[in-house]
């Protein structure tokens, strides 16, 4: 019985250790404000990268609309708290819902488009969102929204990241996730296997968009100020690089990509031009030398913990019997 749950327990333990180390670093004043910000950004980027990967890597649709979905979430969430004075959890729900609806709106008409055309259409969607937001006075026009409650802290970021990853991982490991993979591999054959490809293409967009919306709500409630221009194509591009470097179709890869690139840009903060050069270079290098990304389609799963756990468990048992 214990053996069965050992990997899960070990995984939870690892997460608890990670959480505590950062929490101690923050409360104990060991981490500078600059690095705390970057750790939060890392969390937000993990959510963005893994949700974009669900659309682009697992379902094989090439979307460039992620900044748009994030903006919808951020502004909706900010309206709920800053303009309407409602509590933060409602902002999360509203932000994710609004982004999910945007996902349906983008997902449905773009179904007939493939490859480049889909990329261009979703890119257009992102730009439309930005321009529309700039022209709505209710959300501050071009100068954006201010005075959004700064409620986001490490526990909220941590839980959001863990739950997002768990949700995507569970989805991919289910029959619905397999249907998405089938769409990516061969949509004609998928239909002949009884897979409703329209449904699963839109579903991937909806889940991906909802999680990007969550990232937006977190972002807004950490910085307290948001401007439409922050959600430009450049943001989508950053996330795309994280996904590509980590590996299209690897959730672990998205985490690794987000952590690596957020860290890199933290070091290069002083020279922002260099950051863009680095991203572009990374994209080219990874496309040429490792198109499958650092991790390919490999994952760290409970099985990984099972292997480590098995070794540990055996060692513990031996001690007891001795």
């Amino acid at each position: 019985m214990l053996k069965k749950y050992f990997p899960s327990i070990l995984a939870c333990l690892a997460l608890a250790v990670l959480f505590t180390i950062v929490q101690v670093g923050i409360s104990g004043g060991l981490l500078s404000g600059y690095w705390i910000t970057n750790i939060y950004l890392m969390g937000i980027n993990i959510i963005l990268a893994s949700s974009l990967n669900l659309i682009n890597g697992f379902t094989g649709e090439f979307s460039l609309g992620h900044a748009g979905f994030m903006a919808v979430g951020a502004f909706t969430g900010a309206i709920v708290t800053a303009n309407l004075g409602l509590p933060f959890p409602l902002a999360i729900i509203a932000g994710m819902l609004a982004a999910a609806i945007a996902g349906v709106i983008v997902g449905l008409p773009t179904l007939r488009l493939r490859g480049d055309y889909l990329a261009i259409a979703t890119l257009g969607f992102g730009e439309i969102v930005r321009v529309v937001l700039m022209n709505i006075d209710y959300v501050g026009g071009a100068s954006g929204m201010m005075g959004i409650p700064e409620v986001v802290n490490w526990p909220i970021i941590f839980i959001s990241v863990v739950l997002s990853l768990l949700l995507i991982r569970n989805f991919i490991g289910s029959s619905h996730g397999r249907a998405c993979l089938a769409v990516r591999e061969n949509d004609l054959a998928a239909q002949m296997m009884g897979v409703n490809i329209t449904y699963y293409k839109v579903l991937a967009f909806v889940i991906g968009a909802a999680l990007a919306g969550l990232a937006g709500v977190l972002y807004a409630h950490y910085y307290s100020i948001i401007q439409p221009k922050e959600f430009s194509f450049m943001l989508t591009f950053d996330v795309l690089v994280m996904v590509m470097v980590g590996g299209l179709g690897s959730l672990t890869g998205s985490v690794v990509g987000a952590v690596l690139l957020t860290t890199a840009s933290a070091f290069l903060q002083a020279i922002p031009e260099l950051r863009m050069v680095l991203y572009a270079l990374l994209l080219i290098v990874s496309a040429v030398f490792r198109p499958q990304g650092l991790l390919g389609e490999k994952e760290i799963t409970l099985r990984t913990f099972e292997r480590w756990g098995g070794v540990l468990y055996a060692a513990l048992n031996r001690k007891q019997t001795e």
């Binding site: 397999r178 993979l181 089938a182 591999e185 061969n186 004609l188 054959a189």
Partner: peptide, 10 residues
């Protein structure tokens, strides 16, 4: 299918 259409990477 006449030309095999498997889910090759799965």
């Amino acid at each position: 299918f006449q030309n095999i259409r498997l889910f090759g990477n799965l």
